[in-house]
Design a protein around this nucleic acid. Structure first.
Lengths: 220, 220
DNA sequence: CGACTACTTGAAAAGAGTCAATTCACGTGG
DNA sequence: CCACGTGAATTGACTCTTTTCAAGTAGTCG
């Protein structure tokens, strides 16, 4: 039931893959249903909603976030194709979820999930592990490291190492709210990476990585 | 793990597990065994260890943390009496755990936990929820708010509102590593709270709260 | 009492945030 | 096909917070 993960040395801490969720036996069977579409910006659920379902991303990308009273936003996670989200510890949503790009989702009703606690536990523990990684990033890394780590994370999730191209499906504002920075700071770091010849920016949303080692160094 | 910071926790009670079994029912039964003692600073487990057991704090306090290559430390959680910790997604420890004060722990071997995924899922989801709260604190709050929120969290876990006294079982360094600050900054905020007549500091480890509302305001 | 460690305080420096002004990319309509 | 308008991204100047480095003070334990 427990699957293997890469060895966990302190230095490898933030290099951990954000790999898509592995095959989950019975869960997968329940997730083979129809795909519901969401347009850019469409809300999937909101804080306070009754939690009725789990979702698996078929295509597109979803942001999971919370809001502070004054409007500040913390994006807890981006969900990419194959990944499952929507667990709650009680029957209520504690987050907002909406589509960053045009997105398709498969659904499992909670009722069907009653006897899947083994599979769900595994998913929850992985989520916990990621949350802790992200906590480390937010609390202990400078702006450059955060952005570089984010780019590496996206690269890994897209298997970009070969092509050298990273696709950014989200805006600078989304990046900033995920990394706990302002859009200006994110932008400045991007420019800095560009000036250092570590990346090129053919468009705002496409990155050519020229120097992976340089990027990795930056992420410390 | 610990209770969510009040500032970010709209719903106080999160008692609804996916499973129909009352939370921790069978777990409690398994946790009634003998108590193992750990002296101040004693290691409970280390990153890379084989994950063999869950623990429940009988008395004392435990810190769960990770280290970066350069020695920077992030304390993910303080575990207080009654709380259960030690889940891993893959059979290996990804954190360090050691005793902040003299501590007693009860143990459940993983083998006995095989059929407890319902209870464990609930615990894991609570942990996830707290991790997200902490993420928000780390990424979006200033130094004063972080310290104030921490004091309120400790107060809540100790039910200090009546007595007005908060006991800090950990050093400034532990607080700093939990809050993503330096010990100097933590110290300065404590002094500031003292000067603002919000708290008194009879000793380094004991706080008299003079103005709860002031403290709550401080926490943003 | 003395030595050790934890904590506090101060001054200077670094880092990120804020506010404001451009610049850029892209879709719309002429 | 090009001009224009809109929203996103970048850039610049300045401010504010937190860190860093360097003393100094206060509890604690032998």
């Amino acid at each position: 039931m427990f699957d293997a993960a890469p060895a966990f040395s302190p230095s490898a801490t933030r290099a951990r893959p954000f790999s898509s969720v592995p095959a989950q036996g019975r869960l997968d069977a329940l997730l083979s249903g129809p795909v519901t579409s969401f347009a850019v910006g469409a809300e999937i659920y909101a804080e306070g909603d009754k939690a009725g379902a789990l979702y698996q991303v078929a295509f597109g990308i979803v942001r999971i976030y919370r809001l502070l009273a004054d409007g500040r936003r913390q994006i807890c996670a981006f969900q990419m194709p194959g990944e499952i989200f929507g667990f709650e510890s009680d029957g209520e949503r504690h987050f907002f979820a909406d589509a960053v790009a045009d997105t398709g989702l498969r659904t499992v009703r909670m009722a069907s999930a009653a006897d899947l606690s083994g599979e769900l536990l595994n998913l929850a523990l992985r989520g916990l592990s990621r949350a802790h990684d992200h906590m480390l990033t937010l609390s202990r890394l400078g702006a450059c490291s955060r952005v570089a780590a984010f780019l590496l994370e996206m690269a890994e999730r897209q298997e970009s190492e070969e092509s050298g191209v990273i696709d950014l499906p989200m805006s600078r504002a989304d990046m900033a709210d995920y990394l706990g920075l302002t859009i200006e700071t994110v932008s400045r770091v991007m420019t800095k990476l560009k000036d250092a010849k570590i990346i090129r920016l053919p468009t705002y949303r496409h990155i050519d990585v020229l120097d992976w080692d340089g990027l990795r160094e930056m992420a410390e």
